[in-house]
């Protein structure tokens, strides 16, 4: 009896533990790095060349979606630079035929979550907070869990991720010496009256 009870408790605990570790987005999503049809390297473009995120992700400031760039955007440089590179064959074909390039989607929240990019970047949350150091990624991987609990962490304490709007797209920004993220964040949150929704309707409609 006692042994059965102990066995039962151990089983329950191990199931819970297993679930808590392995079945959460922090395990199942973080690190997902699928192979893309075109071997695009953010490290070269955003890192080495220093291109602003918005050059390609053009509608991030207006739209709920941060759009993946069109082949037209790629070709705006690549009709001249590396115009015949075999790595860009897909892009050239897409541009010629009008067929979309089938990118593998990495960051996805469930369909009943209505996430809006524009309000985040307009109010001082950098790409880095959710997507990690994209400018150092040759292949983009899923950096943060993007689970509801994770989102709420910031919504409850926005000072942990706020930065001046001018630095949102500067993925290498660190708080200047003498300041901490918390201080800067708190000040910005107060001045701009950041009030990230914590009620269900903020994201679930």
């Amino acid at each position: 009896m006692a042994a059965a009870l102990v066995g039962l408790i151990l089983t329950a605990l191990s199931v819970v533990g297993f679930t808590y570790y392995y079945a959460m987005p922090s395990y199942t999503r973080v690190g997902y790095a699928p192979t893309q049809p075109v071997a695009f390297s953010h490290k070269i473009h955003a890192g080495q060349l220093g291109m602003d995120c918005r050059y390609c992700h053009t509608h991030v400031e207006e739209s709920p979606h941060s759009n993946v760039p069109t082949s037209q955007v790629c070709q705006s440089c690549h009709t001249q630079i590396k115009a015949n590179s075999p790595l860009l064959a897909e892009v050239r074909q897409s541009w010629a035929t009008g067929e979309a390039i089938e990118w593998e989607r990495i960051h996805k929240v469930p369909e009943y979550v209505y996430f809006n990019h524009s309000i985040h970047v307009k109010r001082g949350v950098s790409c880095v907070s959710c997507h990690g150091k994209i400018n150092e990624m040759t292949v983009v991987y899923h950096d943060q869990p993007l689970s509801m609990g994770w989102c709420l962490e910031c919504h409850r304490n926005p000072e942990n991720h706020l930065r001046p709007v001018g630095e949102v797209y500067n993925l290498d920004w660190v708080p200047p010496t003498g300041e901490t993220q918390q201080n800067i964040g708190k000040e910005l949150a107060e001045l701009a009256r950041i009030n990230a929704p914590q009620h269900c309707g903020g994201c679930h409609r």
Partner: peptide
């Protein structure tokens, strides 16, 4: 297994369209 989901952007986007709006 996590299903593979594709993103299909325009090849040439019409000027007045903002995806999502």
């Amino acid at each position: 297994r996590r299903p593979s989901i594709k993103i299909l952007p325009y090849a040439k986007k019409p000027e007045t369209v903002t995806p999502g709006m």
